[in-house]
Write a protein that binds this DNA or RNA. Structure first.
Lengths: 265, 265
DNA sequence: CAGTGGTCTAGACCACCTA
DNA sequence: AGGTGGTCTAGACCACTGC
């Protein structure tokens, strides 16, 4: 009996333009993300995947190569391919989800909605989101984010209204904003740009975050883009400086950069 | 006449263990780094490389794929492969050299040495550098870094003394510290970890940087490691918050992260 | 239309690991 | 010895670009 699970039944579609290697890649990724395969588990060897899906070894290897490149799996000659520790992943994904980020750090995330409305975007916001002068209506969401019940971030999010009509009726407290944008509005994050500044907390922010006016903090602005290159979300956050710090790791050889947030409560 | 140059004469060695795709990769990389191929230039199409080096297309593509993955070249179906703009590269290297970083931003870098001495490392510094209790002597260098003559950073660097005997006699003002460590002491940066905190400037830092006590700034600590995994340098910096900001860019597809510093004078 | 890179096949030999 | 991933070949069809 082999010590690996074959993927659950799922066939490749030869009649669509999506490459076979990519279809296989998604199947394997899904096995891992849904937890059917755990970190450290061996995935089926190339020979098995070739047989099961009727693919040549080159095609199977192309899929596995990509998974290895982004640290989803680790390949060992003579031994096999194994699901990698997802910790490496989290660092890359952390910006997308405050909730996941906190859970990864062993903290209990929380969220409190302060405001939920539609409004005209202020000038710089409209510009960043590339809103035409005629239609600058945006959905505005103000949230305080908590870790172990302590306020950490004050977030203000703007999303063009035409991209998310009716979003004010959705339940934003129980599932993540990105999840809702993806599921109901087909807005998929492709890339994002974030700026981080040092910032002296104004009276209101300080009050919301439970620290003194004039204390040091971070002002973080994130602009998120779709595959098409259009921005679809802008979030401006204020973070407590005494509880947050950022960490950057660089490798010269592979030219890899890792960026993560850490919390001190 | 084709509009691309064939690589200068250089043969592959079939008798060594180094894979052929890797040998080809290095040949192409060398053409680019030595400037024989410029950004935007087309590199020979796969068919030409196959013919010239007597390789199958798979092998040639393996080399080109790697170059495309690390942004050395850009591939376009129907058009060809082209040398990428090296700007993308610089962002990954920026942390290593303040001087290069400023030049890339179009600013004139400057440096003022405030202190150059040997001293016993303070406890946390000795710990981070993994100095044995018996030998905690370090080289200590305090510098103010300038951009267009404006003070920007106050840097304090510690290097274990046993790694750099006699460094106090070197000319640190005209060439970069990393360059000296590399050239004279064979200390090559392999990877580095940096933490960034928000920080209220104390009286001395504020005076050195020319701003008011209590103003907001960043405290940045970098620990640099050798190939062996040993730390060899620790730099603790204070940056003016009103002139520096950090920028993080993420791509979901390739899981790439870009981290850079920006300056507002 | 010819030339480019993107996908895919079927098969081969090798180096490495475990037993 | 048998299985794994690493390298490599020769050939095929396709999609996209530009003339």
């Amino acid at each position: 009996m082999p010590d690996y699970k074959l993927p659950s039944e799922r066939a490749l579609n030869h009649h669509i333009t999506e490459p076979l290697y990519h279809q296989l890649l998604l199947i394997l990724k899904r096995e891992i993300e849904t937890g059917r395969l755990h970190p450290g588990d061996q995935i089926p060897p190339e020979s098995q995947l070739c047989a099961k899906y009727g693919l040549s070894r080159t095609t199977v290897r192309q899929a596995l190569q990509i998974l290895a490149d982004d640290n989803t799996i680790i390949r060992r000659r003579g031994k096999g391919s194994f699901v990698a520790n997802p910790k490496l992943h989290r660092n890359l994904n952390h910006l997308y989800s405050f909730t996941e980020d906190m859970l990864a750090l062993g903290l209990t995330p929380g969220s409190e909605i302060l405001e939920k409305s539609f409004c005209q975007a202020p000038g710089p916001i409209a510009e960043a989101l590339r809103l035409p002068p005629g239609d600058q209506k945006t959905f505005r969401l103000v949230r305080v984010r908590l870790a172990n019940r302590e306020p950490l971030l004050l977030e203000t999010t703007f999303i063009p209204h035409y991209l998310c009509p009716g979003i004010d009726a959705k339940d934003l407290s129980s599932s993540s904003l990105y999840q809702i944008l993806q599921d109901y509005y087909h807005l998929n994050l492709h890339h994002a740009a974030e700026t981080i500044e040092a910032f002296s907390l104004d009276k209101e922010s300080a009050a919301r975050l439970g620290c003194k006016k004039g204390a040091c903090g971070f002002k973080i602005q994130r602009l998120a883009f779709l595959n098409s290159g259009m921005p679809f979300e802008l979030t401006s956050s204020v973070a407590r400086g005494d509880k947050c710090l950022f960490k950057v790791e660089l490798q010269t050889g592979k030219h890899k950069v890792n960026f993560s947030r850490e919390i001190n409560l």
